[in-house]
Design a protein around this nucleic acid. Structure first.
Lengths: 143, 143
DNA sequence: CGGAATCCTTGTCGATACTG
DNA sequence: CAGTATCGACAAGGATTCCG
């Protein structure tokens, strides 16, 4: 966990911040994680992916797919047949990322209620103008 | 690595995808994770945060801080003194998220070299034209 | 010191149309 | 079927300025 606890004004973390930014720039967009998750069940064709991800456009599917392929997270296999058939499949690298992503999903599943509760509490206390609260009355509500 | 369950043809993800989107919308932006990471060492003042996060503007620091406070991930404490002093501190909820985020950072630290290598390989193979691999001419899975 | 309000530059995403 | 190309809409982010 934290390298130093209650050490005061600590700053300038090592280099983790750079790594975090890297992975966030990659999966932080709207569709990447959805594509990876959908591909978790095995190889899929382009049209299957589009059908399985409601709301995605051809453009974004293509862009996301190409970015993931470029980074070695998924493998594209085109069969020179007619009609043309292309399959996408996660690589080992892609699956390892999926594991980490699922950890985040687990966090969300566990705590999204707390987040929603805190948000509602805040909307009541200080909608958008009144925030002249010197100290926070309530706050940490972990379970 | 137990990704595929008896090789299902398609996906049909439960509802985890929704949770993933939730958390990604929250931490997927440019600064949120950086703020949380910086706050991992203990309470910090506004100006300390700004000094510890190179490149962040006052605006983005304020916006990020308010969003995190609203969701109950950090606690804001204002001391009515002069000069005014405000401290920000992670809540238990915030720290639990930090743990999950660090898992992602660990993935990045472990695999970012592989990603970079794959990316370079791709630039050579098919820079701007024709990268059809047509590998594995096997009918591994068709319908 | 710790913000809020404003403006403006970008990158990102979505819809549409066209090609192989 | 499986993309590619182009345009426009939108919102995140940055710089600046002012207030408590």
């Amino acid at each position: 966990m934290a390298a130093r606890t209650t050490s005061g004004p600590c700053q300038a973390w090592p280099e983790e911040s750079g790594f975090i930014r890297e992975v966030l720039d990659r999966i932080g967009d709207k569709w990447t994680v959805l594509v990876i998750s959908t591909l978790a069940g095995g190889p899929m064709r382009y049209s299957d992916l589009q059908a399985s991800i409601p709301g995605i456009s051809q453009r974004m599917l293509t862009v996301t797919l190409k970015a993931l392929e470029r980074d070695g997270l998924l493998l594209r296999t085109a069969y020179p047949e007619i009609p043309p058939r292309v399959e996408y499949e996660l690589t080992d690298l892609g699956r390892s990322l999926l594991t980490s992503v699922k950890a985040l999903a687990a966090w969300a599943a566990t705590h999204h209620e707390d987040v929603a509760a805190n948000r509602r509490a805040h909307e009541q206390t200080g909608v958008g103008r009144e925030k002249a609260r010197t100290t926070s009355p309530e706050g940490s509500r972990a379970r």
